[in-house]
């Protein structure tokens, strides 16, 4: 028998030992808000592409701007996480095709003009008049130019919004999924899983707003589809781990009997996915709206998914394999 009995190391580097803990709440907040904003982009554009008409509720018309504000908040958290904050501009002197973070940095910049045009085009006459009234004279021509672009290329902007939303949602998962060093992240499923979760949390945030009845029904249906997709992707991720080699089996065991089992299944799978799905079915069949509890559960579950995966992944290095 050559079983490892004891391993000691003289290394005690901050952030690295006893196990990796370089990424904390800042990254959790960013991954959550990034996914949520990705979801809002996809949903806001898809709602209009489907119905062919501008959003009915006044709140829904402003969501692209709210999305950009939330994204800025998330990027602020990301910036706080940098060890060399004054060097953040270095991301924009370089593009590295093999680095998901490099893709992400550029996606984050490109999504702003798209969101701005998406939002301006959504505004109704009253909202536009209000905005014109608030715009200083020097910028008035610029605003009119933007309105012109937002209206003329509406379909193109809607399609671009879907593409940008999907890119943002997927990259946040692939960022973790492309690191072979962290066994628990090392699954390509994380990309689509974070996208599905982003769409679901985005829908949950929209469901908290006063919505037109038909818009609410559509969002509930799409959210149910996103939740089902999430459940399938989580099952596929665990199945992928459990049926692969020693490292994958260890990763699966963390969620299937290991230290993260209880918190993952209770906070993410049951309270964040299964209960909201049940409430959505009840609302659809029995016309009993769960105005607040449903979105809150989904948002909490989405936050928990990222928190647990980020934490568990950092604890999953090759050196911890038995």
């Amino acid at each position: 028998m050559n079983t490892l009995i004891e391993a000691t190391t003289t290394r005690a580097n901050p952030g690295i030992d006893p196990s990796l803990h370089i990424w904390g709440w800042e990254i959790v907040v960013y991954l959550f808000l990034g996914g949520l904003v990705a979801g809002i982009f996809v949903l806001a554009a898809a709602l209009e592409l489907r119905s062919g008409e501008k959003p009915r509720g006044p709140a829904l018309r402003l969501t692209p701007f709210a999305a950009l504000a939330l994204l800025s908040l998330g990027m602020g958290a990301l910036w706080l996480d940098l060890a060399h904050r004054l060097w953040a501009w270095r991301f924009y002197l370089f593009f590295h095709a093999t680095s998901p973070m490099s893709w992400g940095a550029w996606i984050l910049v490109l999504i702003y003009p798209v969101g701005l045009l998406l939002g301006l085009g959504s505004l109704n006459a009253d909202q536009r008049a209000w905005l014109r009234g608030k715009t200083p004279g020097a910028l008035a021509t610029l605003l009119e130019t933007f309105f012109g672009w937002a209206d003329a290329g509406r379909r193109g902007i809607l399609l671009t919004s879907v593409v940008m939303g999907v890119s943002l949602g997927i990259y946040t998962g692939l960022l973790l999924g492309t690191m072979p060093s962290r066994i628990l992240w090392n699954s390509a499923v994380l990309g689509p899983l974070f996208l599905a979760s982003g769409i679901s949390t985005g829908a949950a945030l929209l469901l908290l707003l006063p919505l037109d009845e038909s818009e609410r029904k559509t969002l509930l249906r799409w959210d149910a589809a996103a939740i089902v997709a999430e459940l399938v992707l989580i099952a596929l991720m665990l199945l992928g781990f459990a049926t692969s080699g020693e490292t994958g089996q260890w990763a699966a065991s963390q969620f299937l009997g290991g230290p993260y089992t209880a918190v993952f299944f209770s906070c993410v799978v049951v309270l964040g996915l299964l209960v909201p799905l049940l409430l959505e079915v009840v609302e659809a069949k029995r016309h009993l709206p769960f105005a607040t509890i449903l979105p809150v559960l989904i948002l909490t579950g989405g936050l928990a998914l990222r928190w647990i995966l980020l934490t568990a992944g950092q604890h999953s290095a090759f050196r911890f394999l038995p």
Partner: peptide, 14 residues
């Protein structure tokens, strides 16, 4: 280096 720590997470050897 902006200190984003992606390389630290990516290193199999910590």
């Amino acid at each position: 280096c902006s200190g984003c720590k992606a390389c630290i997470a990516a290193c199999p050897y910590d």
